[in-house]
Design a protein around this nucleic acid. Structure first.
Length: 807
DNA sequence: TTTAGTCGGGG
DNA sequence: GTGTACGACTAAA
């Protein structure tokens, strides 16, 4: 039989001492299992005496044996070697047979690539990936199995020439538990709501009936019946992907545990298996045949750096990525309603909201996970949970065959120690002069480090090799051969070119294509930018101290050279960080600046290029605490359309009252839009007077801090600890992780004594001095200083004069 | 300033 | 699972 096949999941199993790959996917839309035995695990052995190959061929140890061997020419870094590829009957045989070869083969030198998991090996060798389409030949399988899906024996599989975009079916899940104690405990606390969200199903399930339920609520008889109903729905939905938010660490393990405790049957796997939870510190949950993607895991591992939010909670991430506010929960009132058998519609809506938000996030993020999986030949399940280094490692592994290369062996213990102790100089950051600037031109390098690697052919096999033509590193005694293109520059150039090509295509693509192309260029960018870091990552064979420190040294070299050139041409350079430069015209023409940049670009080597990033109408750079020198990485800019971007001011983060944040933002805005000093001063005066007059709403005075550990474990009584004590006295939960809200009130001596919960505090009963001196002043002092306003003096003066009025 | 330890998300 | 985990941030040294 022949057919088209969409690959969804990969696993392996053993029959009669022989490994079979288990490919799950769709044939004509129906989920099907295919068993395949034509791919075997292998590794490479280096021998000093080739005749020992015959002995290796004969190795057999219990159920494990060498199936066959072949000689191949491979390159390790820059050494060409003849290596014996040894095929085994099962992955389980690798470890024992490896140690037999080590011990018993006299001419044994080294083993290569013996640590690559079987499934990855299969994907990497064939450049296969999930959700791609294949032409397959298959036949009836005679093997006994407990698969719920049809099962066949696969005879051949090749990637289809024509790839049609496949949109996987996604189902999101979220649970609510009755957790009133200090800790969430699946042994005792039941699951009371479960919601499922997909294109065809949007429901919240519960087992306590109440009057007038919303139409998205479905009642079940008991917790057990509810879980079994959920399992049934998951099977009916027949999704390709199941997603949740922190579902690795919470939802799925909780369901699994709970099902066991209350004796509910929960076996959604295609072989009737349940949820498999592995890992201790970081749990991983797997369902056989459905790819489980924990959206939180991916955001934390990969997207974290590019997301501008103060936490990675579902609420914060939805706000940033979806522009949707999450309606926050009041669990106390939810639980009260549950106990008193009142309406649970609000609880149900909250529950459904979470799986809905997760579903919407999935629409944005799952394409990126899939494309990262395709690029580095990892199953989507792995791509979702991978670190940058794993993505790069796997991508390089896939590309090796284009260079007949193998991964260099991993470091020994002592070498690893040495690497971990080694550090090197990073990027260049220009010390700004604090002040207010107008007409700032910003330029930056597009992918600075990748373009340096490509332009100078930086690679482990080109560093310090004798060569006809070479380029010296700024690092003393280090050079790079230019005779032959290195592996890493070759791979990076390809990634950069592929991304440029996709960006061209995006312009004329329809919405559906755009989503995929965007995800693809994101994947290319992510892997390209992470690759240079591999040189500095101690746990890999690609580690190279000389490459790593040369790359940052080249970066510093080019950026400082350009700064000098611009200064010489009469422009003033205000700031620079790693790959960007901020320039002021200083009375010169914009045209001549652009000409200077063009000239700089013709002098830059290879594919390195300085781009015009944008023009900002105003900007301020502040000084560091107690000095006159400019602070690095702390500035605010206003673009020509009036949009403000703020970098590095800690006040924007939490732990500050609304009033502090508001005043800082307002003062920044006034200064950036060139309001005269007297207006700024009168605004500050106005705020201070209002605070003194108790006219600011209490709401804006609330300070929030997260309680990090149990109250009893705090040695010192910090304000938020004092607030947590009061919370507990009021009969509420104050467990680690709780966000404590409090107001500093006027009664008491120490700050901790003055702390009150917002509900205990009457309007205006806040400590005016505290808010003025600890919230307002520090948030604006440095900023006001830039335009010559002494905020401290100003505030003291206001205080004086209002005292004068008083007496 | 360097080092060890904890926490992240979830209810 | 043919291996092993991070990394940012804070409190203590």
């Amino acid at each position: 039989m022949k057919s088209k096949f969409i690959l969804l999941d990969l696993d392996y199993t053993e029959f009669n001492n022989r490994v079979y790959l288990e490919l799950t996917g769709r044939i004509n839309g129906k989920k099907t299992v295919l068993l395949y035995d034509k791919f075997l695990p292998y590794f490479y052995v280096e021998l000093s005496d080739e005749s020992d190959a015959d002995r290796i061929k004969q190795i057999k140890e219990g159920d494990f044996y060498v199936v066959s061997t072949e000689w191949l020419e491979k390159t390790i870094i820059s050494e060409e070697k003849k290596l014996l590829r040894v095929y085994l009957n099962t992955p389980r045989a690798v470890k024992p047979i490896k140690s037999i070869i080590r011990k018993e083969i006299k001419s044994f030198v080294q083993i290569y690539e013996a640590n690559i998991v079987f499934i990855k090996r299969f994907l990497v060798d064939n450049s296969f990936s999930m959700f791609s389409q294949y032409d397959i030949e298959y036949e009836k399988s005679e093997m006994e199995s407990n698969y719920t899906q049809p099962c066949f024996f696969l005879k051949s599989i090749i990637l289809s020439k024509e790839q049609q975009a496949y949109s996987p079916k996604v189902l999101s899940i979220d649970i609510e538990t009755l957790s009133e104690g200090e800790e969430i405990n699946p042994e005792k606390e039941p699951i009371i709501f479960v919601s499922l969200y997909s294109q065809s199903l949007q429901k919240a399930f519960t087992y306590q009936k109440y009057e007038n339920p919303e139409n998205f609520v479905e009642f079940c008889q008991s917790e057990k019946a509810m879980l079994e109903r959920i399992c049934e729905c998951i099977k009916e939905q027949d999704a390709d992907i199941i997603t949740g938010y922190f579902s690795d660490g919470f939802d799925l393990p909780y369901i699994s545990k709970r099902a066991r405790i209350i004796n509910a049957s929960f076996q959604p796997g295609y072989d009737n298996s349940g949820i498999r939870v592995t890992g201790s510190s970081f749990k991983v949950a797997k369902i056989k045949g459905i790819t489980h993607l924990d959206i939180y895991r991916f955001i934390r591992g990969i997207m974290n750096a590019s997301i501008d939010s103060d936490s990675l909670s579902l609420a914060a991430v939805s706000r940033v990525l979806l522009g949707e506010e999450k309606h926050e929960a009041d669990f106390d009132s939810f639980f009260k309603a549950w106990k008193n058998q009142e309406s649970l519609n609000r609880f149900a809506a909250y529950n459904l909201q979470d799986s809905r938000l997760c579903y919407l996030l999935s629409e944005k993020i799952v394409p990126s996970i899939i494309e990262l999986g395709k690029l580095s030949s990892l199953p989507a399940f792995q791509a979702c949970r991978s670190s940058f280094s794993m993505l790069v490692e796997s991508h390089l592994l896939k590309r090796e065959k284009e260079f007949s290369m193998l991964s260099p062996p991993l470091p020994e213990e002592s070498e690893l120690r040495k690497r971990q102790r080694t550090s090197f100089e990073g990027a260049f950051v220009y010390q700004p002069s604090p002040g207010f600037y107008e007409s700032l031109y910003v330029f930056d390098f597009r992918s600075l480090y990748p373009t340096i690697i490509v332009s100078h052919n930086i690679s482990p096999e080109t560093v310090n090799r004798s060569s006809k033509k070479k380029i010296d590193s700024p690092v003393e005694g280090v050079w790079f051969s230019q005779d032959k293109e290195g592996f890493i520059p070759y791979v990076l150039k390809d990634l950069i070119d592929a991304r440029a090509e996709i960006k061209r295509k995006i312009a004329s693509a329809d919405d559906r294509e755009k989503t995929i192309l965007n995800a693809r260029q994101y994947a290319l960018k992510t892997v390209a930018n992470a690759t240079w870091g591999f040189f500095a990552y101690p746990l890999t064979g690609w580690y190279s101290y000389d490459c790593a420190r040369s790359i940052t040294a080249f970066g510093r070299h080019y950026i400082t050279t350009i700064i000098d050139k611009l200064k010489k041409a009469g422009f003033s350079v205000i700031y620079s960080d790693t790959d960007s430069i901020f320039v002021c015209l200083d009375g010169k023409e914009e045209k001549s600046l652009m000409q200077e940049i063009d000239k700089i670009n013709t002098e830059l080597p290879g594919i390195m290029e300085l781009n015009f990033e944008g023009k900002f109408s105003t900007g301020i750079f502040v000084s560091t605490k107690g000095t006159m020198t400019g602070a690095k990485k702390r500035y605010a800019l206003m673009s020509q359309d009036g949009a403000i971007s703020v970098k590095g001011f800690e006040t924007i983060r939490r732990n500050w009252s609304e009033i502090g944040k508001e005043v800082q933002m307002k003062v920044l805005e006034m200064i950036l839009s060139k309001k005269p000093n007297n207006e700024v001063e009168s605004y500050i005066k106005d705020v201070v007077v209002k605070i003194r007059a108790k006219k600011i709403e209490n709401r804006k005075m609330i300070i929030t801090t997260q309680l990090k550990k149990p109250i009893s474990e705090y040695e010192s009584r910090a304000p938020h600890v004092a607030a947590a004590e009061r919370l507990r006295e009021a009969g509420k939960r104050a467990a680690p992780g709780t966000i404590i809200s409090y107001i500093v009130c006027s009664e008491g001596k120490k700050i901790a004594d003055k702390v009150r919960l917002p509900e205990e505090c009457e309007q205006g009963d806040y400590d005016t001095d505290y808010y003025i001196n600890n919230q307002i002043l520090p948030s604006i002092e440095k900023i006001a200083d830039v335009v010559g306003i002494n905020a401290k003096e100003l505030i003291t003066k206001i205080t004086q004069s209002s005292l004068d009025k008083f007496f």
